[in-house]
Design a protein around this nucleic acid. Structure first.
Length: 284
DNA sequence: CCTCCATCCTGTGGGC
DNA sequence: TGCCCACAGGATGGAG
């Protein structure tokens, strides 16, 4: 599942191919890949002949500034992957977007489950970027700022990390990893994460993301995420809890448990991450 | 405002 | 062996 580290790796790969280059032809090959009330034809025409000035990232969204002030926003969803290809390369199954550039290279978007998209907006305010909190990696909030964003929230901290509002970029894998490293129980009400706890959470966020990015991201057994050059990320063996139900906690040896939080699989160590007072954990 | 749920989708794998 | 179905989850819109 692409999360911040996987999107950041993708951004770095694509930036060299995109930055400063002009889109000579754009094909949106699947209706659902254009989103936000725009048709494939509209996305194609809005992107046509535009030059990409800079490819950035906010949370899990790729953000390209275009020469006319428009913003191209792409999301990998659950199964999306960008490739850099040559015009003659075979079009793989589930290729939903093809952008041709002035140097004859192509950037293609392959997305079997179509949760991902490529969209164009007049500015960031009218795009989904406007809902996002500060980026967990490039622009992390201070402990005070994170505490303020969590103040009064009763939802489980796990759910709030996935929300993208308090902090942007974390998904199910890294949220679990960060909470484990922070020794915070996933069902802890968000509002109780403040002060030193918030500082520890942010430190863990930095460490977990740094490791994941250095390892080229996490490729699970199902190979849902591959680097743009087709290689697998190597962060899987660095995970402490995600996907490790019943296996020993790397810190203390206690078997990792899995519960559902908001219908999402949540992995934690019951001894390192003590249940907060008044919170009952129900087994699956 | 908040919390929580259903919805979108396809490949995979477990169960029978 | 082969079929069926539950499961995986990011973002969003709506109910309460």
């Amino acid at each position: 599942m692409p999360e911040l580290p996987e999107v950041e790796i993708t951004r770095r790969h694509l930036a060299t191919a995109l930055d400063g280059h002009t889109l000579t032809g754009v094909q949106v090959r699947h209706d659902r890949t254009a989103r936000y009330n725009a048709s494939p034809a509209e996305v194609e025409s809005r992107l046509s002949l535009r030059r990409i000035e800079n490819l950035g990232r906010h949370g899990k969204f790729l953000v390209a500034d275009l020469d006319d002030g428009q913003v191209m926003v792409a999301h990998l969803g659950m199964s999306g992957r960008f490739t850099i290809s040559n015009p003659g390369d075979e079009i793989l199954l589930h290729t939903h977007f093809v952008a041709a550039f002035d140097d004859d290279q192509q950037v293609r978007f392959i997305d079997p489950r179509t949760f991902g998209f490529v969209a164009v907006f007049d500015d960031r305010e009218e795009s989904p970027l406007s809902r996002l909190g500060p980026d967990a990696w490039s622009d992390p909030p201070s402990a005070g700022e994170l505490s303020a964003r969590l103040r009064g929230r009763t939802a489980p901290i796990k759910a709030l990390l996935l929300d993208q509002g308090p902090i942007a970029g974390l998904g199910n894998i890294y949220a679990d990893e960060i909470l484990h490293r922070s020794r915070i129980h996933p069902l802890t009400p968000g509002g109780r994460v403040r002060g030193e706890k918030a500082a520890v959470l942010l430190e863990a966020t930095r460490d977990v993301l740094a490791m994941a990015i250095a390892n080229g991201g996490t490729t699970l057994d199902d190979l849902a995420y591959l680097l743009p050059d087709g290689r697998a990320g190597e962060n899987l063996s660095s995970l402490s809890v995600y996907g490790r139900e019943d296996l020993p906690c790397p810190s203390c040896g206690t078997p990792i448990r899995r519960v559902l939080v908001r219908a999402r699989s949540t992995h934690f160590c019951p001894s390192c991450q003590k249940s907060p007072r008044g919170v009952v954990t129900v087994s699956l």
